[in-house]
Simulated scan of single mutants.
Amino acid sequence: MNSHIRVRAAAMIINKNNEILLVEYEDENGVHYNIPGGGAEPGETIFEAVRREAMEEVSATVEVGDLVLVYEYEPVENQSKYGPQHSICLMFECTIPDGETAQMPEYPGLNQTDIKWIHLARLKDITLYPDIKEQILEFAWEKRSLPIIEESQLNIKIES
C-alpha cells in the first residue's frame, strides 16, 4: 500500500569552511542542485534512510545529528512544480567522519552530473530545489532548528 505522503530524509552537510555539500543535476531545467536525500524505504528508519541516501548520492558515510528542518511539498498548493507526489522531507545536520571524502558515486542517479561543495556565500548564485537557501543560511549562522517549511510559503517574505 502506497502512502499518500512520501517521507523523505536528507543530509544537510556543512563543513568547517562554511561550504554545503550538494548534488548537481542537469536536465530539461538546466543545472540545479539538491541536498543529498530521498525517500525512506519500507521498513527503514529515517536515520537509516539519511545514511543510505548520502551513500548513494555522495558516496560517503555520514553521522546523523539533529533534525534541523522539515519541508513539506504539497502539489495542489504549488501547481505540481515538483511533480504530483505530496511529500515531507526531514533534513538532519550531518557530518562526514574525518578521513572520509565525499565523491561522485560509481552509479549516479538519473541526471546526476556531480557533487559539489558550495560556499554558503555563493548559495544565491545557484538554482537549488527546493529553494530553501534562506533557511539554510539561517540554520548555518544561528545553529538552531527551524520551523516547518511549506513550499507554498517560500515566496512569502517573513518579517523579523
Score class of each variant (00 low, 15 high):
E150T: 08
A10M: 09
M1R: 13
I20S: 07
E77W: 00
P130D: 04
E72D: 11
T95K: 03
Y71E: 09
N2S: 13
P105V: 03
I158D: 14
R8T: 15
S3E: 02
L21P: 07
Y129S: 12
S152V: 10
N155H: 14
G65D: 03
C89V: 02
Q103D: 11
M91F: 03
Y82E: 12
Y73C: 05
H32A: 12
P108F: 15
P36F: 09
E138D: 14
W117G: 02
E142V: 08
S152M: 06
M104I: 12
A121T: 13
E134C: 05
A102N: 13
E151D: 11
I88R: 12
N17P: 02
S59E: 13
E142Y: 12
A60S: 15
V31D: 04
Q153K: 13
I136K: 07
A49R: 00
G99F: 03
S152L: 10
E150A: 14
I156H: 06
H86P: 00
Y73E: 06
E100V: 05
I118N: 10
E28S: 10
S80A: 12
R6D: 11
C94G: 00
V7R: 00
Q135S: 11
A60Y: 00
M12V: 04
Y71L: 00
E56S: 05
F92W: 00
G65T: 01
H119W: 03
F47D: 01
I148M: 10
K116W: 08
R8W: 07
L90F: 08
K124I: 12
P130T: 07
E138N: 11
M55R: 03
R6G: 12
V68S: 05
S59H: 01
E138A: 14
E77N: 11
A10F: 06
D98I: 05
R52K: 08
I46M: 06
S59F: 05
D98A: 02
E56Q: 12
E63L: 01
T61E: 07
S3L: 14
Q85E: 12
E19G: 03
T61C: 06
W117V: 05
Q79S: 06
N15A: 07
L22P: 05
I13D: 02
Q79Y: 05
I126D: 06
M104P: 07
Y82H: 12
L123H: 03
Y73W: 11
G43S: 09
Y33N: 09
L90I: 01
W117A: 01
E159H: 12
T113K: 14
E56M: 01
T95S: 05
H32T: 11
N18V: 01
T101Q: 09
R144P: 04
E151Q: 14
E44T: 06
A9V: 09
E57G: 04
K81L: 15
E142F: 04
S87N: 13
S80T: 07
K143L: 05
T45C: 02
